[in-house]
Design a protein around this nucleic acid. Sequence first.
DNA 1: GACAGGTGTGCAACCAAGTTGCATCATGTG
DNA 2: CACATGATGCAACTTGGTTGCACACCTGTC
Lengths: 143, 143
Amino acid sequence: MTLHDTAGAAREFLEQTGLEPTLNRILVLSAVVAGQRPMTAAEVHAEVLREHRLNRVTVYRILDLLAEKGAVNRFSTGERAQHYCVGRNHSHFHCTGCGRVQCIANEELHFDEIAVANALNLDVSHVDLHLEGLCPACARTAG
Amino acid sequence: MTLHDTAGAAREFLEQTGLEPTLNRILVLSAVVAGQRPMTAAEVHAEVLREHRLNRVTVYRILDLLAEKGAVNRFSTGERAQHYCVGRNHSHFHCTGCGRVQCIANEELHFDEIAVANALNLDVSHVDLHLEGLCPACARTAG
DNA sequence: GACAGGTGTGCAACCAAGTTGCATCATGTG
DNA sequence: CACATGATGCAACTTGGTTGCACACCTGTC
């Protein structure tokens, strides 16, 4: 998948959300959508740079905006950099061997996000389940 | 609870784990144990400094060591600083209003950490459930 | 067409959290 | 005592992210 494949949807989303669909925003959102796994801001920047030059500060600002509008999820793996991805009802597996992060459907984990959010008498707006361990490839090498 | 109340147990833990029970280590571990909620490295440092001077780098190194040995949990809230706490089978609630973080028993959330860890055919060593929202006090102010 | 106001972007400087390299000190062992 | 080992302090550095400010561009009004 390339940025071009996802640019249309990205543009559409921006318009619907009332954000001006500037080229930078379209490309940043497209990059996140096109990415096969959660990406850091630096990775998004590098990806967009392949076809259009823009400042890294702009990437941060756009990602902030998109996260705030709910277009992308922002989460932290415990490493320094935040990660960004799209989609709902999933959690993240972080391989401590190679550092890669992947999304895993909550269904597959038999994890009910809503139930957990409602279990407390607290105003929970966001639930984030983070799994850490070794991916199959790293487990083979380590084992 | 003060550092002195927890120092004995801290010393004992260090000895059992084969770590030299230096004063710095005892005080750092005591501070985390005595803390009512998860603390950042800077908070631990400040707490220990109240009664004994030590370098912030030493705090980072000791916390690393303790996390590695399993004496403390290290986790990330999405803010920049890592948080440290003790105890097992609990998750964390992060108030986006006041920034405070608190531990919540997994039982109370009806969350089965082990089941989630075993749901996948992956080598999961660590599960971390992060809840975000408004604590009662902040919800009152905001609402 | 001139001009005001708002928004998006670039650039340089900055900041906070954490890390690294190296000197020093304490402790233990032959 | 000589030497090795581990803990600590200190300064410098790195990384990811943020801020302040200038400028470009668009839109609406006169």
